[in-house]
Structures are given as structure tokens and as C-alpha cells.
Write a protein that binds this DNA or RNA. Structure first.
Lengths: 134, 134
DNA sequence: CTTGACCCCGTACCATGGTACAGGGTGTAT
DNA sequence: ATACACCCTGTACCATGGTACGGGGTCAAG
């Protein structure tokens, strides 16, 4: 049995309006409707919305999320483009992972300093990120 | 010699208005002024702004960035709170890193599928993230 | 057969994070 | 001494990503 918009929203921990907003923006496909006009979703919609929220928390815009969601292998078609786009995305992800590792390091330094009751001069967070690429 | 707002903006690759905005929002300290009222920054301001932009790209809000920037060891003071806050931040960072690794995996799967000219059914990005915590 | 929880559409509004003037002063190079 | 790039304040505006109505239809339970 198909899911209503309310069920999808609940499962994905978002507002009903958010799902309609995504549909308006073309980020999730318009689902089939019942004769009364109710949207009918499958489980896939839940996964999709969860993915969108996850990606947003990682600093991707909805536009970027849309690009990721449209990446899929269609037979005989634009494989080259898919690989190119996916590769670009992977590079950006690697960059993010690196930056997060550096931030983590900085915080660890801060905690250590605190634990040792050593006075740290300056701001370790800034210090630890010193000299990284703009 | 002190830096003008324009020099800081250029070095941090942001707009002059952005720096004034951060100051209004209390995210960077109000710098001293010349007798003519010009703001006088040090190199530190550049690092600070760069850090803010970096953190934003990683999905932190300016408010969260503000909390991170205020984390530092002050002698004799609230070490416990600093450790607690830093630990929380580290956990959130670890979560982000995990999610990014999963996204990366998903993209790698997609690229492999393309390279092998195998037809993948469904969307590998969604599939690879299946069953992860909401 | 009505009540309550849910759905529809449309439009307006909101918070965050800036960006863009307008109107005026500064500083230095020629 | 005048031009030009830069600084100041204030206020208005903008894009993104939603959120909140208002006015109305739907459907299952009692």
C-alpha cells in the first residue's frame, strides 16, 4: 500500500511542507495521485528525503543534492558524464573529509591542553588550521 | 602595519560587507580604529574569516562557528565546559566524516558500475546509504 | 452522518547569510 | 588641489530553504 505525504514526512523527520517544496523545486519526482488527488509515495521517497537532509548537513546545497540524485547509470547513455560528475563530487567529499579531520585534530589539541592544565596561548582551533589552503 | 578591511576581505576571499556583517553579528571582535574611524585588523582576522568559511562549507551554521571560535582555554576558568563543548563538536565531526565516507563509497560504486558497463538497477547513491541512521 | 485527522492548492511569511546602494569622509599620487 | 580608490554608516534588498496560513475536500471511526 502506498504512503501518504504525511507518512513520508514523519518517517524522514521533516515537515509535510518540506516535501511539497522539494517537489515544486523538482528535487523529488511528482508521485502518482489517488482519484482524490492524494500523493502516493513508495519507501523510496523516504530514502530520498533522508539523503537530502543528510547531504545538506554536510554542506551541500539542494542544487548539488539534485545533481547527485540525478546521477545514475542509464543504459547506453552519457556514462562519461556520470563518471565525470561523480568524480568531481568525490573530490569535493575528500576535501571535506580532510578539513573535518583537521578540525577534529584542533579540538583534540584543545581538550588535551585543558586536561593537562597547561595554558595554551592563542586559539588552538585557528592555530591548527593555520596554513591550509584557502 | 595594520590591515584594512579591504585587505582582509581580499586575503580571505570574501566581500568587505561580509566582514562587517560578521562583526555586527558578534562573530569577529570589533577591531581598533584609526583616528579617521578605519578598522585596523591583524593577520588573525584573515585566519578567523577563513575558518568561518571553511566551517560553513562543512555544514556548520555561523552560530555553531561562533561557539567553536569562543572555545579556548582561559586560565583558571571553565575548563570543564570547554572540554564538554569540544567533545560534543568532535562527535558531530565524526558523524559528518562517517556520512561523507558513505557518500564517497556510493559514488565509487556508481563509477565502477559505469566503468564495467554493467546495468545497475536503482540509484546506487540511495542504495549505498540504505539503512543508515536517520 | 458528523467529527477529527489528514490531504489539496495558493500565497504569504520567515530565518540565515549575506549583498548592494546612497550619501559622505579619507589618503595618496600627480 | 583634484582625482581615484578606498573607508564609514545606515538601510534596503536578495537567494536559499523552508514554514505557516486560509479556504476547502477526503476518509475512517463512532
Amino acid at each position: 500500500m502506498a504512503l501518504t505525504i504525511g507518512q513520508v514526512a514523519k518517517a524522514a523527520h521533516v515537515n509535510v511542507e518540506t516535501i511539497r517544496y522539494y517537489e515544486r523545486e523538482g528535487l523529488i519526482p511528482s508521485p502518482p495521485r489517488t482519484s482524490a488527488g492524494y500523493r502516493q509515495y513508495t519507501e523510496d521517497a523516504i530514502r530520498r528525503v533522508r539523503f537530502m537532509k543528510r547531504a545538506q548537513r554536510l554542506g551541500f546545497t539542494l542544487e548539488e543534492v539534485g545533481i547527485l540524485l540525478r546521477l545514475r547509470v542509464r543504459r547506453g547513455s552519457a556514462c562519461h558524464d556520470v563518471v565525470a560528475e561523480a568524480t568531481k563530487a568525490m573530490e569535493r567529499i575528500d576535501g571535506k573529509i580532510d578539513e573535518l579531520h583537521r578540525m577534529r585534530e584542533a579540538l583534540a589539541t584543545l581538550v588535551d591542553g585543558c586536561r593537562d592544565r597547561r595554558a595554551l596561548r592563542g586559539c588552538p582551533i585557528l592555530d591548527a588550521l593555520e596554513g591550509t589552503n584557502a
